[in-house]
Design a protein around this nucleic acid. Structure first.
Lengths: 242, 242
DNA sequence: TTCTACACGCGAACAGTGTTCGCGTCAACT
DNA sequence: AGTTGACGCGAACACTGTTCGCGTGTAGAA
C-alpha cells in the first residue's frame, strides 16, 4: 500500500500522538468531560463536537459509547445523583429535610443539572435507597403510605425546580461583563424595585408596600421555608392515635 | 432596470401573491403562529424558519418584530398568561387554590409553555393583579407579609414544575407509534412495575410493598395534594390572635 | 404625473447543531 | 505471516439562530 493518500502524514502523526495522550475514550471519560462542561457553562453548552474535541476527535466517536446526546446527559445526571449522601437516623422530618438539603447542595454544585431531573430520574441504587429510607421513616411514624409516596414525589419536584430556577437567576447576573455577580445582582434588584415602586399605590397597595420582601434575595431562606411548609403539611396528615 | 436578474418572474409573482394573502406580518401574527406550534409540538419545535414559513418567508423577516428567539418565546408566554382568569372572593385559601388550578389548567392547554416560566415571568398587568389579590387576601387574614410573598413564589414554582413534568410524561407516551397514549402509558407502567417488583423485598420492603401507590398515575390528585400541603403550611404561620 | 425617500421584506451566508454511513487502521489471535 | 474483528472517526446531511445588505412597493413631494 502506498504511503497513505487520503490521510496526510501529519494526520497520521497527530493520531498516534493522541492515542497515547488520552486514556482511550470510554464511557466514564466521556461523562467526565460532559460534566466538566455542565459545571462550567451548563447543559446547553454540551455538544457532541465539544465533548469529542477533548479527545482530539470528532463527534462520531462518541456514538460507540453513548446512544445519543440525551443518553449522555442521562449519564451525567446519574453521576451527580450518586454524589448525594443519604440521611439516616433522626425523625422522619429531619430525614426528609436533610435529604432535600443534600439534594439541593449537590445539584447546585453542578450548574443546571437540575434541569435534567424533570421528566425522568435515572433509577440508580442510590435513588432506590433514598426512597426506601424516607418511606420507612414516614410510614413507621404513621404517615399514610399514599401521603408518603406523594411526599417524596413533590419534594423532589420542588427541589429540582428551586435549583434550576436559582441557576437561571445566577446566569442572568453573570452574562453582563466581568463585574462581580453580587454587584450586578443588587443593581438589577434596585432597577426592578424602582420599576415596581412606580406602580400606582392605590391599585397595588400591598404589592407596593411589601416590595422589599419580594425582592428579598435570600434564596436559601426561601427554600428552607418551602420545605418546612411541605413537611408541616405532611405531618398534619398523620391520623390521630386512637 | 432590466426585467429582474436575481429574482425570477415566478418569484416576483409569488411574492405579490403572498403579500396579498397574509395580513402583513406583525408581532401578533408571529406570536399566533409560534403559539400554534407550541400547542401542537412544544417549545423545542419552534424555529424561526418554521414560524417564518407560515408567512411564506424566511427567518430574517421576523427580526423586524422580535429581538431574538427568546424574546419571541417571551411573547408567547405573555399571551398564555393573559389567558388566565383571576380569582376573587372567598377565603385566601380558596383564592390561592383556584389561582393555582387556573394557572395549571391554562398552561396545560399550551404544551410545555410551563418550561418558559422558570427564571423569568413577564410582568404583565394580569400578573400584577394576581399577586395583589392574593397578597391582599392573605395579609388581611393575618398571614405575615414575608410568608405571603414567599407563598406566591413557591406556589408559582410548584405549578410550573408540575405542568412541565406532566407534559414531559405525556410526550413519552406519544412518541411510540399511532397507538392510544393511554394504552402505551399503562403498558409502560406495567413494565416499570415488573422491574420494581423484581427488587429484593428484604432490602426494599416499603418500596416493594407500596409500589402500586407510586405508580398511581393520577396526576391531578397529586397536584391537588401538593397544593393543599403548601396551603396548610402557610395557614399554620398565622400567629395566634392575642 | 413624475420623482424621490424610506420603511419594510427577505435571500444568502456563517458558524454552529445531532446523527449516520462506511472507510481505514491497528492489535491480537491463529 | 496472515486474517479477523473491534474500534475510531472524516465527511456528509439536514437542520439551527442570527446578521448583512440588497431589492422592492408605497407614500409623499414637486
Amino acid at each position: 500500500m502506498s504511503p497513505s493518500r487520503s490521510p496526510s502524514p501529519a494526520q497520521v502523526r497527530a493520531r498516534a500522538a493522541r492515542l497515547r495522550r488520552r486514556p482511550t475514550l470510554g464511557l466514564e471519560a466521556i461523562v467526565d468531560v460532559a460534566l466538566e462542561i455542565v459545571d462550567a457553562e451548563g447543559v446547553e453548552a454540551v455538544s457532541m463536537r465539544r465533548v469529542a474535541a477533548a479527545f482530539d476527535s470528532g463527534p462520531a466517536s462518541l456514538y460507540a459509547y453513548v446512544a445519543n446526546k440525551d443518553a449522555l446527559l442521562g449519564h451525567v445526571l446519574r453521576r451527580v445523583i450518586d454524589e448525594m449522601e443519604l440521611p439516616s437516623g433522626g425523625t422522619w422530618q429531619e430525614r426528609l429535610r436533610s435529604w432535600a438539603y443534600e439534594s439541593r447542595a449537590v445539584m447546585a454544585r453542578h450548574g443546571d443539572v437540575a434541569r435534567l431531573t424533570f421528566g425522568t430520574v435515572p433509577v440508580t441504587e442510590r435513588v432506590l435507597d433514598g426512597i426506601e429510607t424516607n418511606l420507612t421513616a414516614m410510614i413507621e411514624a404513621g404517615v399514610p403510605p399514599q401521603v408518603a409516596t406523594w411526599a417524596l414525589d413533590i419534594l423532589s419536584l420542588y427541589v429540582g425546580a428551586d435549583v434550576f430556577e436559582g441557576w437561571l437567576m445566577s446566569q442572568r447576573f453573570d452574562d453582563g461583563s466581568g463585574r462581580d455577580a453580587e454587584e450586578i445582582g443588587s443593581e438589577y434588584f434596585e432597577a426592578v424595585q424602582r420599576e415596581f415602586a412606580a406602580l400606582p399605590p392605590e391599585r397595588y397597595p400591598y404589592l407596593v408596600r411589601h416590595l422589599p420582601l419580594m425582592m428579598n434575595g435570600d434564596s436559601d431562606a426561601r427554600f428552607a421555608f418551602g420545605i418546612d411548609m411541605l413537611i408541616a403539611g405532611f405531618a398534619a396528615q398523620i391520623p390521630a392515635p386512637s
